[in-house]
Amino acid sequence: MSTSTTFSPCEISRGGVGDTPSLLTMIRQPMIRKLQNIRPRSTVAQKQVSLLAVICLLIGVFSVLSPHFLTLKNFQTILRNMPELGLLSVGMSIVMMTGGIDISAEAALGVAAILVGKSMLQGDPAWVSALIGPITGGILGTINGVVVAYFGVLPIIVTLGAMYVWRAVIFLLVGARWLSGLPRTFDPLVKTFVLGIPIPFIFFLLITMSLEFLFRKTPFGWHILAIGNSEYSARLAGVRTRRVTVGAYALLGVLVGIAAFLYVGKHRNVEMTVASGMSLEAIAAAVIGGTSILGGEGSVIGCVIGVFFIRLLQNGLVLLGIPSIWDYLVLGGLIIAAILSDLLYKRRRT
């Protein structure tokens, strides 16, 4: 008998409340602040609310169709599968808000994962192995950022090139011989639950929340968005656009490195094709979570919802016994739908 514990992701707080569409007409009384207490929902928040509605609907449908869906264990499984993609997606959303993109994130994850794995095999202290991830990721991210910001090459070109380079590095590092059966050094960290929640998920949530704070409460967030609106304008306004852009890519790199560490800790294995396809999934999660593919607006916390949505859908497909080939169709369709709706929304507003 499955437990009746229910989860209610619908209660996940609506993050990213910024600012708004609303009709605005110039009024001629000197009353500036009078109507300020009306803070209409932002477009990002609107997207997130509708996403939550879809999630609730999906949960409802899956619960009816599969007796195994609405169980504590199943939701634990979903949460377990979120952190690595989640971290990538959060970083990706920040880069996307600058109007950029990073295709190479998955390959950077591979490079970092191999170095973490090699360090574990060498018997380095756990903290050394753990730190190698974010350091490697940070370096690779910074390289991308510098090329994008200082050489003015299109991010998609830079990072596509970087992907091939990192993949080649992976090949050179492992020589097609996987790292298998790595020591169980990080098991206590990655396999433990606190109050029924897997620790890596808590870790991911804490990182996301601190980034949300960084994003909403410090000038960094404004600068990121301003660059995404128009890099030129942001520069005229006095934003150190290059430095901020490099910062965004470096931050993504660090998050990728943390994801690499979690990946290796969990799977104790690094294969040649490690994380392939993950960049696209991360972009999809970011867009679904409210980040615009065109840059200039978005939400960090929305990625949590976006990743949850993707994992929930994938979980439901297996539980409903739908042929696996549909996974690709559904995920592909989802990415197209999310991007199209983002673009159409823009068109309608302007």
Partner: peptide, 26 residues
Amino acid sequence: IVARRYAGGTAAEAYRQAMDLFTAYP
């Protein structure tokens, strides 16, 4: 044979699919 899942080439994806299979077919 109750399911034939495609996990691509990564351990993470195989892990996810297997976990979901265990839930779907206890």
